[in-house]
Design a binder for these strands. Structure first.
Length: 488
RNA sequence: GGGGAGUUACGCUAACCUGGCAGACUAUCAGCCUUGGGCGCUGAUGAUCCGAGUUCAAAUCUCGGACUCCCCA
């Protein structure tokens, strides 16, 4: 810093006095606030107002999911927010699972309603009650639907923006209906593949785990969860893929007429993701300067920051406008920050918002016919000739994505810990480290017993990976690896 | 499910115990100075969660409510 520089080190503001690795919860709240993703000041716990920048990122993310669903033969529909109590309570396990956390409308104005109306905590019941009218014959199957809706759950525990909320604003849920069990099972596989493609695009690391039989989704035959780990060591369920079997079709009477002129009950699956995915993206990729958004969902992929000097604004502005036009022509989402704040202030702000690339244009650059390109992930600065800018930015965006994915995969690997015995876990595991894997024989009794001994809840097991050692409970050969962890 | 703490301007906070002009920082707005990593200066806007009680007088004391946070099962 030059001696004549009036800026003093001490008066410098600090966006993040909070260290992400030391205090993740506070870091997360602050990062979301500074980047203007959501406004958590909305006066209901667990319900947040989405701000323009955050909502743009969310929409970009969802559009990728929509593309994948459309591409695999799903059709978009919409079902109402409210579900009559008589419909909501038709499937017993489902009712037991969601009754306690549902909001229920009991009156309109001062008039008490004849029948109570449930605000959907998820849409199964409301949907299936009507879809049964749509299905007549085998020719109507398979039927693959999805909708993007808000759902409400009265969370009593701590809430956290995007991760654990009372109003899930964008629940993108798919529901499918099939003629037989094989087709339904196949659909589960397709859904898992769709989600793999999606989370890979979002540069998120995950592990697909099958939920143990004693812990499945209410009303399910079996289900899989896409699990990731956030920096405080807690597991987070990014997506759930559920085989409902005939449970709901029996409860709701969803039947089709088959070729033998008999009626058969349909087999169903459902699966969904939400804005939690965006929350996890921010949690995993952010650093002590704020967010880092994957280029694929960044509302602004490149921010142009003019560096003004008195009397030299005109040429700088002109160069910036030209660069912006060029980049937009190459389909790079570009913004220009021509506000009169100091350059440094703007740098910090756009870094906090997670914009992948910054382009600095000052009088020196104009003279040289170049611009300074700065990567958000490495903060590396590089002068680039204006003619080469479009190409360079494209390549750099790709490179940032590759780098982010690499980092994220390495990150998850560190947070999934493999142990051989309960004793090892007790000796070496501390809460904030991540998920715990132990060999398991496949018996419910043993799964529950391990859970109790190590005091960490079961999450699910990796179906496709055999375990090396002996079951951590009974000592018989381990069939698979069971994972344990605290979750959101 | 049980327990505890709290609520003052967009945000953070002082005054509370011991009742007496609600003060600072930040932000915002107007202007100046500036702009290659948060500089500085002048001025302005803006607040005691809601309801009741005690009192000459309540952010402050008492009671009730709402909401928020934390801890334990």
């Amino acid at each position: 810093m030059a001696e004549n520089d009036k800026r003093s080190e001490q008066s410098r503001k600090v966006t993040f006095s909070i260290d992400k690795s030391q205090n993740f919860p506070d870091w997360y709240d602050r990062a979301i606030e500074v980047a203007k993703i959501v406004d958590a000041r909305y006066p209901i716990k667990g319900m947040n107002a989405w701000m323009p920048y955050g909502f743009k990122a969310l929409k970009l993310m969802l559009s990728k999911m929509e593309f994948l669903l459309d591409d695999t033969g799903h059709n978009e529909v919409y079902f109402p927010l409210m579900i009559p109590e008589s419909v909501f309570s038709k499937e017993a396990d489902f009712l037991r699972g969601f009754n306690g956390e549902s909001f229920i409308v009991t009156q309109a104005g001062e008039t008490e309603l004849a029948e109570r109306l449930y605000i959907r905590p998820t849409s199964e019941t409301g949907m299936y009650d009507t879809v049964k009218l749509w299905i007549k014959s085998e020719a109507d199957l398979p039927l693959k639907l999805y909708q993007t809706v808000n759902v409400f759950r009265h969370e009593t525990k701590q809430t956290r923006p995007l991760m654990r909320v009372r109003e899930i604003v964008k629940f993108k849920e798919a529901h499918t209906f099939h003629a037989n069990a094989e087709d339904a099972a196949q659909q589960v596989d397709e859904a898992i593949n769709v989600y793999k493609r999606f989370f890979d695009m979002m540069l998120l690391p995950y592990k697909v785990l099958r939920t143990p039989s004693w812990d499945t989704f209410p009303g399910a035959e079996y289900n899989y969860d896409f699990m990731s780990v956030i920096p405080d060591g807690k597991g987070i369920e990014l997506a759930s893929v559920i085989n409902l079997g005939k449970k709901f079709s029996l409860a709701f009477g969803i039947q089709y007429q088959n070729s033998q002129n008999d009626y058969s009950y349909v087999y169903q699956t459902c699966y969904g993701i939400s804005e939690r995915t965006l929350g996890t993206i921010m949690a995993i990729h952010g650093d002590n300067n704020g967010l880092l958004l994957p280029p694929i969902i960044a509302p602004t992929q490149a921010i142009i920051v003019p560096i003004y000097y008195a009397g030299k604004e005109q040429p700088v502005n002109k160069a910036c406008a030209e660069i912006r036009e060029t980049l937009e022509k190459s389909n790079i989402r570009t913004s220009l920050d021509s506000r009169q704040n100091t350059a440094g202030e703007k740098f910090y702000e756009w870094e906090a918002k997670g914009v992948p690339i910054r382009i600095e244009v000052g009088p020196k650059d104009v003279e040289n016919g170049s611009a300074v390109v700065v990567r958000r992930d490495t903060r590396e600065k590089k002068p680039v000739k204006v003619e080469e800018l479009s190409n360079h930015i494209r390549m750099t965006l790709d490179d940032i994505s590759i780098n982010m994915k690499k980092r994220a995969d390495a990150y998850l690997k560190e947070r999934i810990l493999h142990f051989d015995t309960v004793e090892d876990v007790k000796k070496e595991y501390k809460e904030r480290l991540g998920l715990v894997g132990l060999p398991w024989c496949g018996e419910e009794r043993c799964g529950r017993s391990i859970e109790e001994k190590i005091g960490i809840p079961t999450i699910g097991y990796d179906e496709h990976k055999g375990a090396k050692g002996k079951c951590a409970s009974c000592g018989n050969p381990g069939k698979t690896e069971m994972f344990f962890g605290r979750t959101y």
